[in-house]
Design a protein around this nucleic acid. Structure first.
Lengths: 337, 337
DNA sequence: CCTAACATCTACAACGTTATAGAATCATCC
DNA sequence: GGATGATTCTATAACGTTGTAGATGTTAGG
């Protein structure tokens, strides 16, 4: 049905392998021969069969992207950028949603999903480092985000602690003293929540403000969870004059609940988020947050993974990349006026 | 390296083809034989090589999804649901971003992307019906969204005209008379903008309100474009007391600009959107909008496409499915009080 | 001119699966 | 008990590409 290499070879009067050689830029081909083949390809409208190529070569030129939920704004924006970065290097991205469930993450790591891809961009939420080490096979895996910080794995992340510290310091600098941190639990150590909590505590200490565990409010990183958590907080007798949401979704959920309850932002409570999703810029009031250098993260994680796949990156030990960040001061938590 | 069918066959003491038959649920296999094979598979940890299977069978069990930008909230939510629906039927989804560019849409339609997928869920923005008909090949394509409404293609969409009419009627019913429609151009006919414009005009007529072309404001369906368009409108001498954004992003961009300019929503200007993305529920004020039955769209488009792929749907003529909708009345345009 | 070295091309096998066609086994019927 | 047909299994080819190894042509050096 479709035109194959064989058809091209016949049309060009050369062998099958010569066509293959032309397509793979083999060095020793006479210009005249090459032209004959290219002409035949153009004339017949030949396109290489990627499946056959994959079977023979063992490469799919696809990257796997495992994340919890593509509908979460941060992941949607990240996925879009990753796809563009991959596309620029001749790769596609196949996305798998894990719903942050251990079984799904495990099957993405070792199941048939793996076959379809040459390497993985992995955002583990349920698996721990040992699980991953035991199940990640021989193809390269680059960790994305911050939940796993282990010397065994390549990792592309951002300066979580420093950024969280900067946000907290910003809130404190405007005179706030009781800053709720929304989305972490007291005692968190690893993962982005732990790192960000550390940054928060560091900034408190630097400003000689007390750390009050009652202000550490755990919740899932979603709008609805943020709203519910703030609702509970308002119903309690905990006093606070600022909220630091550990991502923008949680902060925007909090914002919604504050406004519904008649709490003025930023007058009564200042609010900051984390991620700088586009929505943050258009919220009312617009959301003070941290831009995590998503372009850099996308660019470098794809670059590192492809280098590993193609053997360009031969460093034996894992590579850890930390993208820069930028504090975006907006209406929800302005600087001191 | 990896375990192959041959290894399984040897271990089970049967032929290669018998293993294949077991895996493909071939009817005539003795239970004892089947068990031997299954045992061998379990023991060796065999997993079928999907690439080889694809090459031989010509099926990839992947659906292609072509949309302009995965970072757009509506598409992100839709993609997430489509992936879940496909997964439930044993398919994966491979996403391609077109940036609404003709060349990208064309290459998604006829290029190598097509090889990797058994069928396409296609949201054409730049191509017209004839382009698509001429380039869509033999594998099934289901149109998604509303930009192409042509009897040649399968289509899953929603009741654009009726929904737009309902939104407009709702705005009018609260006493508004000068309703800006944001995101369509005067004279649009086809596509979702044209259909929604028709609904808008129908509702105006039903309420005996005048149609004023000055209130038809074209803009791209993005937050920033919506904000800019409303900014221009406020700077002009056009008077209005309501805005109907043709999608939520545009409406939320408009909302941001209105608030910045000190225009009270809904007191001065009522505002409604279209799509009911999650962000709409958490905006301040929360956004009145139309929920397009996204679950139904996802479910039915994937269902239809897979039925076409597997030959279950043999209808010669194209199938058009219209999902229902629901008006979500929220703070930005409450009912009459 | 012969030979070595290099450039250019080709035949054939291989990747791991499914499809085809037919062989072997078993039950059923008269 | 032999024929018939149904069931169960297998050998072999095929999908379209790349890898291996070697064949053929061409140039340069002596």
């Amino acid at each position: 049905m479709a035109v194959t290499m064989n058809d091209v070879a016949r049309a060009a009067g050369v062998s099958l392998k010569t066509v293959s050689n032309v397509l793979n830029d083999y060095e020793f081909i006479r210009p005249a021969t090459k032209q004959k083949v290219l002409d035949a390809i153009a004339e017949l409208g030949y396109e290489a069969n990627l499946t056959a190529r994959s079977l023979r070569s063992g490469k799919t030129r696809m990257l796997g992207l495992v994340l919890s939920d593509l509908a979460a704004p941060y992941y949607a924006e990240l996925a879009s950028k990753l796809m563009k970065a991959a596309s620029a290097r001749g790769y596609r991205v196949l996305v798998e949603q894990s719903a942050a469930r251990k079984d799904n993450e495990l099957s993405a790591l070792k199941g048939t999903f793996r076959q379809l891809t040459d390497g993985l961009l992995f955002t583990p939420l349920a698996l721990n480092a040992d699980d991953i080490a035991a199940n990640s096979g021989r193809k390269p895996v680059v960790m994305l985000g911050e939940h796993i910080d282990d010397p065994r794995f390549d990792l592309v992340t951002m300066k979580n602690t420093e950024a969280a510290s900067a946000v907290t310091a910003h809130l404190l600098s405007s005179g706030r003293r009781r800053v709720v941190i929304l989305g972490a639990a007291h005692g968190d150590v690893g993962g982005s929540n732990g790192l960000r909590l550390t940054g928060y505590r560091g900034a408190l200490a630097a400003a000689e403000a007390d750390y009050d565990p009652a202000l550490v409010v755990p919740c899932e990183w979603r709008r609805d969870a943020g709203a519910a958590a703030v609702g509970n907080l308002l119903d309690s007798d905990v006093k606070f004059d600022a909220i630091f949401g550990l991502n923008d979704a949680v902060a925007l959920g909090a914002l919604h609940e504050l406004i519904i309850r008649g709490v003025k932002v930023p007058q009564d409570v200042a609010l900051a988020g984390f991620d700088d999703i586009e929505e943050a810029r258009f919220a009312s009031p617009s959301l003070t947050t941290v831009a995590p250098g998503m372009d850099e993260i996308a660019e470098r994680s794809v670059g590192l993974l492809i280098d590993r796949i193609e053997g360009a990156e031969t460093s034996e030990s894992a590579i850890h990349i930390e993208a820069g960040f930028e504090l975006k001061v907006r209406e929800s938590a302005p600087g001191k006026s």
